[in-house]
Design a protein around this nucleic acid. Structure first.
Lengths: 133, 133
DNA sequence: GCTTACCTTTACGTTAACGTAAAGGTAAGC
DNA sequence: GCTTACCTTTACGTTAACGTAAAGGTAAGC
């Protein structure tokens, strides 16, 4: 049984990006799909990798940073000499992400307040309408 | 008693950005410091606004998006006609931020695992060292 | 066999968010 | 009065992450 593969437009549609975006990622060496003739053939692993890249992007990482984080999950980069520096990188990234969480929480709180104010004002406007309109 | 003001380099230093960044924000109309002769004088309100912009940036908003969110807090934009569209904008932004939180949580979990693996491998390496070195 | 819907490469264009260099004004301290 | 440390404006440069256009190959369906 051969593995399931995907075309470029299938993945583009699934992830809500253009085919240009996916080609760009290959151009930069972030993904390496196989070829069938000249056409790209994406494996399940390619698909997951693109998914991870886009997830990283959503939290504000650059593409470069995305693949750095993703490659941390790859066992072949875990040779003993690099473990110390890898750990440092992970912890640094972690601190940054935790700071982002704080920022997001602050903003969500603020937005909840504004939303409540809006609803109150809308109610008042509606009551006003009823009384005078 | 006159209000406390700040120079451009004071704020740049406090927030860890260059003076160019702050001038750029004014250039784009995101802040409007007063002038004393040709020199910029930043009020406490200016300072807070810059702080909010930088906080927005940290969670991946564009400058434009930052000021849009910030201006939601400004009562003078809350006239009745715009409340509905304002509320929609707020909720949209909120959904996006919550998605980002999910993404960040996923990534933190993954990084915690990798970190644990690293520490284990380092321990093993140290034990190995002791046994054979 | 010809449309239609895909796919390909090459290559120049675009926007955001500043960086950087040039050229100069000003106020404080020795 | 001259250095030092600030401040100013103008203007061209840079990087990331694609967009877009041109020019063409291919496979399926009528």
């Amino acid at each position: 049984m051969s593995q399931k593969t995907y075309t470029i437009s299938e993945l583009a549609k699934e992830f809500g990006v253009t085919t240009r975006t996916i080609r760009f990622y290959e151009e930069k060496g972030y993904i390496h799909p196989l070829r069938e003739g000249s056409k790209r053939l994406f494996s399940a692993a390619d698909r997951v990798r693109i998914q991870l890249i886009l997830r990283g992007k959503r939290i504000g990482l650059s593409l470069q940073e995305c693949v750095e984080v993703i490659d941390m999950y790859d066992p072949k980069h875990n040779n003993a000499e690099q473990l110390h520096s890898l750990k440092a990188t992970v912890q640094e990234r972690r601190a940054l992400l935790e700071r982002q969480q704080t920022d997001i929480n602050d903003m969500l709180e603020g937005l909840a307040e504004v939303e409540a104010l809006c609803e109150q004002a809308l109610k008042n406007a509606a009551a006003d309408e009823k009384a005078h309109g």
